[in-house]
């Protein structure tokens, strides 16, 4: 039985699509057959972040409307085996998603995939609701910043009441906090909310802390999920997050200011 994971946040621009691409790729790299679905109908971007924008022929809405079948719409990733992308429609508006259609597609995907990663659009409108409705797990992407934390809390409320698990009174959606764009140096100076602050306010388990990194923009420029940049600290932080998602217990890295010792300085000169 496939596990459905929604990547959500409420607020826009916090790193949902970056995270969807990274976690989806990470799961596939561990050998799990994974599909990442873009729920942002009208504003599709997952294809760009994953570097397959020129291979989109049919999309999610085409499948829902029976204008194409799943095999025609799924894009197979060229770098990672077992990784597929179901792109969002670019032309139609979000209201074309209907719950029966989404359910049919997810059920069909569940027959052959291990993980279904749903990249939610921002906001709390229909698209975001559809993306979370069938979820078994939720990764709440949050920046250490007041509006993002507040919106995340709002999303947690919706996860607890507006999902199928909630409606059927089953075990609630398993929630994970992913703190992105974290800057330990600014936290130390008291300029930024700390991991512990955000954890205390949202009160959900921490899946990972992704440090602010220039590599993320570079990865999106190239259309290559950041997790493939194995030398990047952000890429490594995502790898850790995927391990934790799979049940491993790892110490959180990149949450403290890196102490600049003599050897580190020396290395800087050489590179």
């Amino acid at each position: 039985m496939a596990e459905v994971i929604v990547i959500t946040s409420g607020k826009g621009g916090v790193g949902k699509t970056t995270t969807s691409a990274a976690i989806g790729t990470g799961l596939a790299m561990r050998g799990y057959k994974t599909v990442v679905i873009d729920f942002d109908v009208g504003l599709r971007n997952l294809d760009l972040i994953m570097g397959c924008e020129r291979r989109v022929v049919y999309d999610f809405v085409n499948v829902i409307r029976n204008e194409a079948n799943l095999n025609q719409s799924l894009i197979r990733d060229k770098r990672v085996e077992d990784l597929f992308i179901l792109p969002a429609s670019q032309t139609r508006d979000k209201d074309t998603l209907d719950i029966e259609g989404v359910e049919r597609v997810i059920n069909q995907l569940a027959e052959s995939f291990d993980y279904i990663v749903c990249d939610s659009p921002a906001g709390i409108e229909r698209g975001a609701f559809m993306a979370m409705y069938f979820a078994d797990q939720a990764v709440v992407v949050t920046n250490p910043e007041v509006s993002s934390v507040r919106d995340s809390d709002r999303i947690l409320g919706l996860l607890a009441s507006k999902t199928r698990r909630a409606e059927e009174g089953r075990e609630p959606v398993k929630e994970h906090l992913l703190l992105t764009r974290y800057e330990p140096a600014r936290v130390e100076k008291g300029e930024m909310l700390s991991v512990d602050d955000v954890k205390e306010i949202l009160a959900i388990p921490l899946l990972g802390v992704i440090p602010e990194s220039k590599d993320v923009l570079q990865a999106s420029n190239a259309g290559s999920p950041i997790i493939l940049a194995s030398e990047s600290d952000a890429g490594q932080a995502y790898e850790d997050a995927v391990s934790r998602l799979l049940g491993e217990d790892l110490v959180h890295r990149f949450v403290e200011v890196e102490k600049k010792g003599f050897f580190n300085k020396f290395r800087l000169f050489r590179s």
Binding site: V146, V149, R150, D153, S161, E191, L193, D197, I201
Partner: peptide, 23 residues
């Protein structure tokens, strides 16, 4: 008070208030 402390206190208040009306 650092701005991070101010942010945390403001969030704790607003989040608590919104949680009571949420359900």
């Amino acid at each position: 008070k650092t701005t991070a402390t101010v942010a945390k206190e403001r969030l704790q208040i607003i989040v608590a208030r919104e949680r009571t009306t949420r359900n």
